[in-house]
Design a binder for these strands. Structure first.
Lengths: 135, 135
DNA sequence: CTTGACCTTCCCATGATGGGAAGGTGCAAG
DNA sequence: CTTGCACCTTCCCATCATGGGAAGGTCAAG
């Protein structure tokens, strides 16, 4: 299986597959005589794992840990759970940060006339003319 | 006022102030005879504006638009409101993406024993052993 | 006049991804 | 066989916003 097929089968771009190999997230791929990388079902399986973990927002380094836990048949599920829980906490703090931004902006947008006049509580807030915009 | 003082007064690091000038987000700073940049109250005011906008999650390019609207005394508040509304929508889609990740992970974490045994629904899910983990 | 805190510019690194160039391979149709 | 096209290889560059640090100049207090 060429890299392009592996990419299509796993949902990871060929570019990324090479990159993951380069940073040793994945073991060096087998090579044909031509130098082409050659992938099998196991490789695609691992790629799908990586893809799924990335889709869940794990960083490359976290995926590295997940892969090593996955391959370790004597792992403790507690270690996986701890890693996932840490990630969930990180997600929640990012969510909170974004929600705070959105809430602030929504308040400002709600009291902006949004017409052709220049007066704008959004700009007023940004420029530090502390809020005369209570909702 | 030296760049360090402006940095402390605005909450924007000296490094970033130079960078913002470099990419023309800010006009070139005045210079003393020594070559040192020299900042006044207006500059600090603009820096605070940028800082606040960045804190609300606006990209540099969006801040550029906001600054130009701010300086344009004949702006239409509708333009500001539209920009802010677009940004709010973008924030919400990022929030949704993160919340979906967190929700999926929470389900998995909830049915992971988290002890010293190796069986783990989190890894099972990642490896594509489609969910025998209904909450 | 020395010392230490500041300033200048310049280059490099991050994280994860994409773009593209230059050149080699593989396969099907002519 | 040769041509053509789709694919592969490596290598370098760009993104976005920020920080780190080196080499060298400046300022103010002691």
């Amino acid at each position: 299986m060429n890299i392009g097929d592996a990419a299509r089968a796993s949902g990871v771009s060929a570019k990324m597959i090479r990159y993951y190999e380069d940073i040793a997230l994945l073991p060096p791929a087998a090579r044909r005589a031509s130098g082409y990388r050659d992938y099998g079902a196991d490789d695609v399986h691992r790629l799908r794992f990586v893809r799924r973990a990335r889709d869940l927002g794990f960083s490359i380094e976290e995926v590295r840990e997940l892969l090593s836990l996955w391959h370790d048949k004597s792992r403790h599920s507690g270690d996986v759970k701890a890693l996932a829980s840490r990630h969930i906490a990180a997600l929640h703090s990012r969510i909170d940060a974004l929600r705070n931004m959105a809430a602030t902006l929504e308040t400002l947008v709600d009291c902006c006339a949004g017409d052709s006049r220049p007066d704008c509580p959004i700009l007023a807030d940004l420029s530090g003319d502390g809020g005369r915009c209570p909702p």
